[in-house]
Design a protein around this nucleic acid. Structure first.
Lengths: 203, 203
DNA sequence: CAAATATACTGAATGGTGTTCAGTAAATGA
DNA sequence: TCATTTACTGAACACCATTCAGTATATTTG
């Protein structure tokens, strides 16, 4: 029976269509401002149809998060691949911050938005894990080669990630206003902060 | 004329009433889930009345942020006041993280929610500034006494704050799931991370 | 004191949101 | 050919922030 296979194909194609439209609109206008109605309009279907393919808006967010984690991983692979793990670590930090500042809406949905807690995890989790592992692998190499003041892998990863996320998210949410810096100065400060931090944990 | 003074008083009393109800409900249910209608219900006025005292929901958020910054400052003053600036810095870090984890909805509205950009700043800003200055003052003392690997005050403040905010916000948003730790372990990890970080920048 | 004005408040209405579901029309299977 | 399954629709539901004509009370003026 080729029919059921075709139906299967059409089903995943429809899911892809919805996901793609959602990604585009989430990127442009953000998750909150993108309504199911608008997505439905964009793909020329009725709002109800989307619910035949996705349980709710959260599940759609979850899928797009998977794509976004993949994009970040790709950025790491192309821009943070120095042989020297320490240099790679610095490249990673800068790539991460740059990624966040250049894709604010995407970063938002990846790490700032309240995560849906009603969705089963599949490929989404994989992409997230792979990206996180890219960090732990690099960090492990640094630790093994005794390049860092850091000795605990998990604790180190938590620190590096938190520092980078803190820099990006405080800036995206305009909470660095208290520092009374111009936009240029802020970007420079973020860059300096990440360099300076890695330097301070380097032996 | 005592009348206009009484009217003035009544006006600020009404603002206080609304602000207090909003604070309570924001704390319990979060900003997003607290509707103007619910606040109006709680104080037994109609929704329209709230708009006679606050321009919009954002302005209400802005006011409550002021209160929240004040609460954090109070926590610093009572729990992070060691004479030794280095010890004080560590106390501050721990106090900050504890504050965030114990008041998730408050922390949310202080540092994670999209800031309103349509509001004039007054006492809100003051509270935020004072809290930030508590950090820079402590850090400045550490730098002056040459206790830290940090030399630039602003850069140092940015780093310390970002690290703490990163730890809290990643955890509040359940993004530390990738680390596959239990709740107990996570809390310990956050505590360790902050200690370990300060230690690594200590001379 | 009475009339005019200013103030405080209401609640229905507007235009949005996510989500559901009875109904329809087309494709498939018997 | 007819019954059934499948895909889709769009109106309806219960919310949301915000506005504004209308009302009722309080104050000021003549």
């Amino acid at each position: 029976m080729g029919i059921s296979e075709r139906k299967e194909r059409e089903k995943t194609e429809m899911r892809d269509l919805i996901r793609a439209a959602a990604l585009k609109m989430f990127l442009e206008d953000g998750y909150a401002k993108t309504s199911i109605r608008k997505i439905a309009d964009a793909i020329e279907y009725s709002p109800g149809t989307i619910y035949l393919y996705y349980k709710d808006k959260d599940e759609l967010l979850y899928e797009v998060q998977g794509l976004a984690y993949g994009k970040l991983l790709e950025a790491f692979r192309t821009k943070a691949n120095d042989k020297d793990p320490l240099k790679r670590l610095i490249q990673m930090g800068k790539t991460y911050v740059k990624f966040g500042l250049e894709n604010p809406e995407l970063y938002d949905l990846m790490f700032i938005i309240r995560a849906p807690n009603n969705v089963d995890e599949t490929s989404h989790k994989d992409n997230g894990d792979h990206t996180y592992n890219y960090l732990t692998d690099t960090l492990e190499e640094c630790i093994n080669k005794k390049l860092l003041r850091i000795t605990d892998l998990q604790l180190g990863a938590l620190q590096v990630w938190s520092m980078c996320h803190g820099l990006v998210s405080l800036n995206l949410r305009c909470r660095l206003k208290v520092m009374a810096l111009g936009e240029e100065e802020i970007n420079a400060a973020l860059s300096h902060a990440i360099e300076n931090y890695i330097a301070s944990v380097t032996l």
